[in-house]
Design a protein around this nucleic acid. Structure first.
Lengths: 187, 187, 187, 187
DNA sequence: AATGAATGAGCTTTCATTCAT
DNA sequence: CATGAATGAAAGCTCATTCAT
C-alpha cells in the first residue's frame, strides 16, 4: 500500500546516506523512486519534512529492535548484553538505516521537535542505567556521561564491524566486542 | 602575514562547523572574512580545496598537541593518560577545530589523498597500542577495533564535556573520564 | 506547440548572430524570450547544447531549401543555377539563419558530432559536382578545392547582397552574380 | 627590444586564433607570455586595445607582403597573379596571422576606427580593379561585388590549402588555383 | 618598467517548490 | 492521486582591471 510514498522514503534514505542531504536533489529522489517531482511534494510538504519523517521512522524501527528478547527476570548484565547485540545486529541488518541514524541524529536538518520526540523512546535505557548505578553494578559517574560514552563506543564498534562484516558471526569477536562495552560501564 | 588567507580559513572553519559545508555559501565566507569573493578563489581554487586545506591544518594542529609532554620513561598507562588529556584539553581549547574534525573526517568532501596524508600523523598511536598489547597491558583484540573503540569513546566523552564545560576542571570528573577510557582498553 | 522552446531558439539565434556566443548571457536569452532562466535549462542542458541544436536545425532548414525545384531532367548548369539561387534567396529570406550558419559552422562551439551530422546533408552537392567533372563540364581540379571555392565565393556574394539588399531583384545583378559563380567552376 | 610587449602580442595572437577572444583570459595570455597580469595592462590599456593592435599590425604585415614584386610594367593579369600568390604564400607562411585576419576582420571587437584604418591599405587593389574594368579585362559588375567575390574565393582556396599544405608546391595545383581566381573576375 | 594580490560584477547552472492539467 | 513544465533565487566560479610596491 501507499507504494509511492514508501518508494520515496526508501530512495531518499539511500541517497541521503550516500551523498548527503544537500547533495541530494529532490528531483533525483523522485527520479530514482520512479515518481514525478510533484508526487514527492504531495506526500512531504518540504524536503525537510521528508528527512524528519525518515528520522522518526528509523528511530522507531531501531527502538523496537533494541527491546526484543530483553527478559525481565534476567540479570542486568544479561539485559545489557541483549540490548548491545540487538543494536549491533540491527546495524548489520539495516546498514543504511544505521548510517542514516548516526549521520543525521546531530544534524541541523532534524528539528528539535523531532529530536525530543525521538528521545522519549530511549527512556528505558536511562532507567536501566539508573538501576545499575543504584545497585553498584555500573560506574557512579554522571548518567549523561555514561550514555554518551556508551553511544560513542557503540558507534566505534559498529564502524569497525561495517568495515569487517565477516567478523559478525565469530564468537570470539562477539565476546571481545561486548567485553569492551561492559568493561567501560561496569563499576 | 597573509592575513587574508588566514581570515578566510578561520571564517570558513566556523561556518562549516555551525552550518555545514553545503549550507555555507562561499559568498558568506568571503563576506564574513571581510574579503572579496574573488580573493577566496585566489587562495583556494575551489571550495573543496578550501575544506581540504582546513582539514589538514586542523589535523596537524591536533597531532602536535597530542604529543606534548608525552614522556618516554613513563609507564604506558601514564602515556595514554597524557595523550587522553592532551586530546581532551585540545578539544576544549579549540572547540571549533574539534567539531570540525569529528564532523568532517568521514565526509566525502575530504579526498582520499587528504585522508591518507592525515593518517600518517597518527602512526605513533598505533605503535603505542601494539606495544601495550605485546606487554599484555591492553586487550588482545584486533587493533583496528581497539582504535575505533577509543576514537568513538573519546567522541562521546568530549560531546558530554562540550555540553558541560564547567566540569573540565573538577578532579573527580577527570578521573571518572579517564577511568572510562582506561577500563575500555586495558586487558 | 512547445512555444517556450521555440521562443528560446529564436531569441538565441538572433542574439548569437548580433553579439556572439560568449557575449550573449543565457540570462539575456531567457529574458528576451520571456521565460525564466530555469526554463532555458529545462529544454537545453547547457548553453552548448542550445547552440548545437540551433546549428542542426538551421542546416536542416538550409538543406531543404537548396533542393527545392531542382529538376532531374534539366541541364547541369540549370541545376547549379537553381541551387545557387535557392541558396541566395534562402540567405535573403533568413538573414539571421544565414549569418548564424556562416559564423558558427567553423566555430569550436559546434561539436564534431554535430558537424558530421550536418555534413551528410550536403552529399548531393558532391554528387552533382562529380557528375559535372565526369562530363567535362566543370574544372578538373580536386573536388574539395572546388567545394571550398564555391562556398567561399557564395559567402562573398551573399555578404555583398546583405549590404545591398535592394539589388536582389535586379535581373542584371542576378545574372552578374551567377556568371561569377559559373565562370569559377565551369571547365 | 620591448621583448615583453612582443611576447604578449605573439601569445595573444595564438590564443585568440585557437580559442577565440572571449575564451582567452588576459590572465592566460600573461601567463603563457611569461609576464605578470599587470604588465599586459601596462602595454595595452584594455583587452580590446590589444586585439585592435594585433589587427592593425597583422593587416600591415599582410599589405606589405601583397605588394612585393608587383611590377609596374607587367600586364594586369600578371599583376593579379603576383598579388594572388603573394596572398597565398603569406597565408601559408603565417598561418596564425591568416587565421586571425579572417576570423576577426568582421568581428565586433575590431572598432570601426581600426577597420577604416585598415581599409586604406587596400586602396591599391581597388585601383587595380578599376583599371581592369576600364580596359574591359575584368567583369563589368559593381566593384564591391567583385571585391567581395575575390575575398570570399581566396578564403575558400586558402582554407583548402591549409588542410592540404603539401599541395602548395605542386605547379599544377598553383595553376588550378589561379585559374579559379582569374576565371571568376575576368570579363 | 614590472609585479601579482585584490576586487566584485557577472557568468552558467542548480534546485526546491508550485500549479494547471 | 499524480504529473512535469515552469519558476527564479542563489550557488560556485571567472576574469578584466586596478594599484601599492
Amino acid at each position: 500500500m501507499n507504494t509511492k510514498r514508501d518508494q520515496i522514503l526508501d530512495t531518499a534514505l539511500k541517497l541521503f546516506v550516500n551523498n548527503g542531504f544537500h547533495a541530494t536533489p529532490t528531483s533525483k529522489i523522485a527520479k530514482d523512486a520512479g515518481v514525478a517531482t510533484g508526487t514527492l511534494f504531495h506526500y512531504f510538504k518540504t524536503k525537510e519534512e521528508l528527512i524528519n519523517t525518515l528520522y522518526l521512522e528509523t528511530k522507531d524501527n531501531l527502538t523496537n529492535s533494541l527491546l526484543e528478547n530483553v527478559n525481565v527476570q534476567e540479570t542486568l548484565k544479561a539485559k545489557f548484553r541483549q540490548v548491545f547485540f540487538n543494536y549491533i545486529f540491527w546495524a548489520v541488518d539495516h546498514p543504511n538505516h544505521q548510517q542514516f541514524y548516526t549521520s543525521y541524529s546531530n544534524s541541523p536538518f532534524i528539528t528539535n521537535l523531532t529530536k525530543e520526540h525521538g528521545l522519549q523512546r530511549f527512556q528505558f535505557i536511562y532507567e536501566l542505567i539508573e538501576k545499575g548505578q543504584d545497585e553498584d553494578i555500573l560506574k557512579a559517574v554522571p548518567i549523561d556521561l555514561l550514555v554518551e560514552a556508551m553511544q560513542g563506543l557503540l558507534n566505534g564498534i559498529i564502524k569497525h564491524l561495517m568495515e569487517n562484516p565477516e567478523k559478525m558471526n565469530e564468537e570470539k569477536y562477539q565476546n571481545d566486542a561486548f567485553k569492551l562495552f561492559w568493561d567501560t560501564i561496569k563499576g
